[in-house]
Nucleic acid binder design. Structure first.
Lengths: 233, 233
DNA sequence: TTTGTTTTTGAACCCCATTCACTTACTGAA
DNA sequence: TTCAGTAAGTGAATGGGGTTCAAAAACAAA
């Protein structure tokens, strides 16, 4: 009874084909300008058939984002594993993380944004579909990976789960923000530096801080013994 | 001929009334669930009249965001002026900046996000309306204020425009990201800490860095003379 | 009052996402 | 090979909502 299995496979494949077609159209036209007619044409099927494979247009977005998030999670695992094994400098690991993040977020983050956005808009109607739930759960998994890495690596100040979690959110927030800054608005071109350069410098700054090591000129009062570290918060 | 003036005033007032009505409806229903019929009803006018005052629904969003951005810019000016005059600790100033940012971004940022988003979606059709242009320009003005502050304050490592700009973007990105983390997705409740606490700790971390001050145990090779500062990148 | 202008209205228009009655393709059994 | 039953696929119809427009109402000036 290989028929059932074959059908199953074909069905999955068809779903993937539609998704890829959708991605192509979105990328060339942008979300709002893409109609399901366009997608159907690109996928060489009829409009109605889309609904046999996806609950809605939004669900297609979610599915794309989910694919991206899963890829990111896989990349992240790789990056962190290598980082620990080779005892690579933290900023290098974070740089690679950022790179993976943008690989995910540039094509898919838009969908992600939109989903978050529409989630909020729809919160009183219907909280979320299963695809969106999966998306959230994969994302939280990635955050957890990062947390574990930070606790395990001796290069970070944070050495317990709680502290590390905050660092993770700081990094995550920074990445989200940088993406918005550069990619989300098209303003990137206004800046004199590339995203890549910028990110690596931001990471550098996050590592060592932006404050002047010796804060004020007029307070030698509590310079008792910590003169050498100077930066222990 | 005070008639003309009165009409002028009434027109402006009417626009404001519509905008406020729109804001109320958006806040109670969310964007996507708000129709122009709703807004018209709330403003006690007919649907068509909205179009005498605003180019489109999107333009209403942009106008709301603009109001928010202008308020933020004003607040920021105040915060930074006080900070410099009173030589307040940098993290305090940044904390107040964050507060002002969220005051703006919580009610209006959603519109802002959406505009950025739709800007991207529509970039090949029509770049932008005048309201959106103003919004961008006000925002860039705020960023510039921050840059100037950072150059002027001795508490920051950065002491030239170029360095300071990067710090500004780091901060801005962090704020954007934190907003998304907490407010944009409703995930805030999942975390064990409040946005306010989180932000202040993030600022702390950004000031002093997340790296362990003495990076590795096995490199006393270049401890020539900078042993006291230890953190000069 | 009359005339010209501005404001206001709400029904009509149009663009989609979504649905649905229907057709076609396929499968397993007779 | 035929046939019933099911799954896959179609595209025109539906409905919601942003936008437009012709006409009415309100208003100003003469």
């Amino acid at each position: 009874m290989g028929v059932k299995e074959r059908k199953e496979r074909e069905k999955l494949q068809r779903a993937q084909d539609i998704l890829e077609a959708a991605r192509r159209v979105f990328e060339s036209k942008g979300f709002l300008n893409t109609t399901l007619q366009h997608v159907a044409k690109e996928a060489e099927i009829s409009v109605g058939l889309i609904y046999r494979y996806f609950e809605s247009k939004e669900d297609m977005f979610a599915s794309l984002a989910l694919k991206g998030a899963e890829q990111f999670d896989k990349d992240l695992t790789e990056v962190l594993k290598n980082g620990l094994e080779k005892k690579a400098p933290a900023k290098e690991v974070l740089g690679q993380t950022a790179k993976a993040f943008f690989n995910f977020y540039s094509p898919y983050g838009e969908y992600f944004d939109m989903l978050l956005y529409s989630y909020k808009g729809l919160k009183e109607v219907q909280i979320q579909g299963s695809t969106l739930t999966s998306l959230m759960s994969v994302t939280l998994g990635s955050l957890d990976q990062l947390k574990t890495f930070i606790v395990a690596s001796p290069q970070f100040r944070a050495n317990n789960e709680d502290e590390a979690l905050k660092v993770v959110f700081l990094l995550w927030g920074m990445l989200l923000g940088c993406h918005k800054l550069f990619d989300g608005s098209g303003r990137g071109q206004l800046f004199a530096f590339s995203q890549e350069d910028f990110i690596s410098q931001v990471i550098e700054q996050i590592m060592v801080g932006i404050a002047e090591p010796t804060p004020t000129i007029d307070s030698p009062k509590n310079s008792v013994s910590i003169s050498n570290k100077g930066l222990s918060i």
